[in-house]
């Protein structure tokens, strides 16, 4: 089902659930992997992904078709994932560095992770990046998103995103080349 058809069907109350089912089927994997790369843990990601789609359901009526549906969903997913990290930081009254340290710990000891040495080295380099650089790197390198799509998602200019990606790549390559 195309995005346009999903949106049209969602506006008719008798088709709402059917349209939503299709929307979830279409976007669940992309949303999951986007959030997973931010939160690292599968269980945390599972919670957040469910929240993301519940928010999508509640707010789809307000979606203005000025942007693409997937960038709008990505934006909600990004907000939810980053808010989840912040809430955790607030709840445990720890610094943001502690949260990143926890992410690194999950990478080393967490479940549902099966990468070889170089892939793990890359992930460890990524959790050390500032949040936005990590986000930009993930969207560009792993998800192959275009800069204008990333600009819609993050509300940041294309120039700033390019600069951010450039910095992230430099730092990551440096980390990878160190033994």
């Amino acid at each position: 089902m195309e995005d346009k058809e999903i949106l049209q069907a969602f506006r008719v109350s008798s088709n709402k659930d059917f349209a939503f089912k299709n929307l979830v089927a279409e976007y669940q994997e992309r949303v999951y992997w986007h959030v997973r790369k931010i939160l690292i843990s599968h269980d945390d990601t599972d919670d957040v992904v469910q929240e993301v789609f519940i928010k999508v359901y509640k707010n789809l009526d307000t979606f203005r078709e000025a942007s693409q549906l997937f960038t709008w969903i990505y934006r909600i997913a990004t907000n939810e994932a980053l808010n989840y990290l912040k809430k955790r930081q607030r709840r445990h009254s720890v610094s943001i560095d502690d949260v990143y340290h926890e992410l690194e710990n999950t990478l080393t000891h967490g479940e549902q992770i099966d990468g070889d040495e170089i892939q793990m080295k890359l992930q460890k380099a990524l959790v050390k990046l500032p949040e936005k650089q990590r986000l930009v790197f993930n969207m560009r390198y792993f998800d192959d998103l275009k800069y204008d799509e990333m600009s819609e998602i993050t509300g940041t200019s294309v120039g700033a995103l390019k600069a951010s990606y450039h910095l992230a790549v430099k730092k990551v390559e440096e980390s990878l080349s160190v033994d």
Partner: peptide, 15 residues
Amino acid sequence: KSPFTVPDGYFDNLS
């Protein structure tokens, strides 16, 4: 390639 995996059948039940 992502090093992350999901439990078997996870996406079948997520919806």
